[in-house]
């Protein structure tokens, strides 16, 4: 059951970085005690704030540079603003952010439709790759999905006996 062992001496480069000093392990802290001086380093220039950027309440300010991708919007944005009232140590921060992500996905569909774009789910889900390389499984999953949907629709639209 066990596979043959590899002879290390036949592995190219074996041991070239071996270092008996590497205990308890690299990378050892390159200590300069700079952290004892607190938040006093010479900061890079501050990026102008052109869009709404939420920041952790565990820091006093925005970082000198920051990303400007996808500022908070709509209902998901309101939830995100609420989440940032709580620290990174709190479920009050992370769970609302997860909720906001799900709400944001729905907002994305609505936004597409509002701009006259009907999302091509087959393309977005990458089903072409499944069709080319995993066709049997894809067909089986689509068939099961169609069957479950048909049963659910039939059940929900059935005529009651007392109708």
């Amino acid at each position: 059951m066990e596979q043959p062992r590899i002879d290390p001496s036949r592995v190219k480069g074996w041991g070239v970085d071996a270092d008996p000093e590497n205990d308890p392990t690299y990378p050892m802290k390159k200590r300069n005690n700079g952290e004892h001086a607190g938040y006093t380093w010479e900061r890079p220039p501050q990026q102008p704030t052109g869009v709404e950027v939420l920041h952790s309440n565990e820091r006093p300010n925005l970082t000198a540079a920051f990303g400007t991708s996808t500022p908070p919007v709509a209902l998901s944005g309101m939830i995100r603003r609420l989440a940032f009232k709580y620290s990174e140590s709190s479920y009050g921060h992370w769970l609302p952010l997860m909720l906001a992500d799900r709400v944001n996905a729905v907002e994305g569909v609505l936004d597409d439709l509002a701009h006259g774009h009907v999302p091509n789910l087959i393309d977005e889900l990458g089903w072409k790759a499944e069709w080319e390389h995993n066709r049997k499984s894809l067909v089986a999953r689509v068939a099961v999905g169609a069957l479950v949907t048909s049963v659910a629709v039939a059940y929900l639209t059935r005529k009651r006996r007392d109708d």
Partner: peptide, 27 residues
């Protein structure tokens, strides 16, 4: 950023001037 105390300690994955949203991870 290369300037904060963490970058100065070669902890470039833990920069303190690149991620406003969280302190636990750099940008």
């Amino acid at each position: 950023c290369g300037k904060c105390v963490f970058c100065q300690q070669e902890l470039y994955g833990n920069c303190h001037e690149s991620n406003s949203q969280a302190t636990a991870v750099g940008g």
